[in-house]
């Protein structure tokens, strides 16, 4: 158990430290000018010293990421289920969904601002636009590959379609669903930042970075990137955490004590 924790937590931390070391080594070793790339410490300080200004912007980005993720996840799940259940709809809707992903997301931002203005909404839409697709594809795939014999068994018992869906098809799709959610989680923050770049009139993390860049404050530029990445990673880890909690059978041989039905 301790070994497992060490491997699952220790190794990623180690590779992160390694990354910082490489960064440090490249900047120092190649005498990179500080306006091109700061040392990790400088980038880190650029964040902590301006924390009070950054924190509300971070919260804003988190809000866009999380709202967009939930909208996208719900939409993705819904579309996946509907397409799996109504094959005709699948043939009609699926090409449109693929098309939606071919649209360069940055080109989508401008019309969204025209339609929705500078509020939080266009950012949420962009995040959802990115997140729903892997969820839909995975859910659709999961639902269409549920063991036919298992579905027949439910029929033999006289189960209704609804109960079969709830007790067989949905749990059988848990693994692909979480795969889709994890892919979506990694991209969600990217969507939020693109949205902020294209559709911010006031303060936002993306504009803060642009501002720092315009002022040749390279440390802040790198620092902001680190913050954005941290938001993405944190959200991804939270989704992984939910998966671990929601699918105990993938790791355990015996159910938890308090888990009744």
């Amino acid at each position: 158990m301790t070994r497992k924790i060490l491997r699952n937590v220790g190794v990623p931390i180690l590779s992160f430290v390694l990354l910082l070391l490489v960064w440090q080594w490249v900047v120092v070793g190649f005498h990179v000018a500080s306006y091109i790339a700061p040392r990790p410490r400088q980038a880190f300080l650029a964040v902590t010293q301006n924390w009070s200004a950054l924190w509300p912007l971070i919260l804003g980005t988190i809000r866009e990421t999380v709202y967009g993720f939930f909208v996208g996840a719900a939409l993705g799940l819904g579309l996946g289920v509907i397409m799996a259940k109504v094959p005709v709809l699948q043939r009609i809707v699926y090409p449109v969904l693929v098309l939606s992903q071919a649209v360069p997301i940055i080109a989508l931002a401008a019309p969204l601002v025209l339609i929705l203005g500078f509020s939080v909404t266009p950012k949420v839409v962009i995040v959802a636009w990115i997140v729903f697709f892997p969820v839909t594809v995975n859910v659709l795939d999961g639902l269409t590959h549920v063991d036919k014999d298992l579905l027949n068994l439910a029929r033999v018992y006289g189960a209704s379609r609804w109960r079969t869906f709830i007790h067989i098809e949905i749990p059988a799709t848990a693994t692909p669903l979480f795969s889709g959610l994890k892919i979506g989680a990694t991209y969600a923050v990217t969507g939020a930042i693109i949205g902020e770049l294209a559709a911010s009139d006031g303060a936002s993390l993306a504009l803060y970075q642009e501002h720092a860049n315009a002022n040749l404050n390279t440390a802040a530029v790198y620092g902001t990137t680190m913050v954005m990445t941290a938001i993405g990673i944190t959200w991804f880890l939270l989704v992984v955490g939910v998966e671990v909690f929601a699918t105990p059978w993938q790791r355990r041989t015996v159910a938890r004590r308090w888990r009744r039905r």
Binding site: T164, H167, W249
Partner: peptide, 30 residues
């Protein structure tokens, strides 16, 4: 359907349920 018990070569136990919950599966479905 609903008038026979039915079992195949494939055990068709669902991995997300415990042994006890697999045994009661028919009731859960109906």
């Amino acid at each position: 359907t609903g008038h026979v018990g039915y079992m195949l070569q494939k055990d068709l136990l669902v991995p997300w349920r415990t042994v006890e919950d697999n045994i009661t599966m028919a009731k859960r479905l109906t």
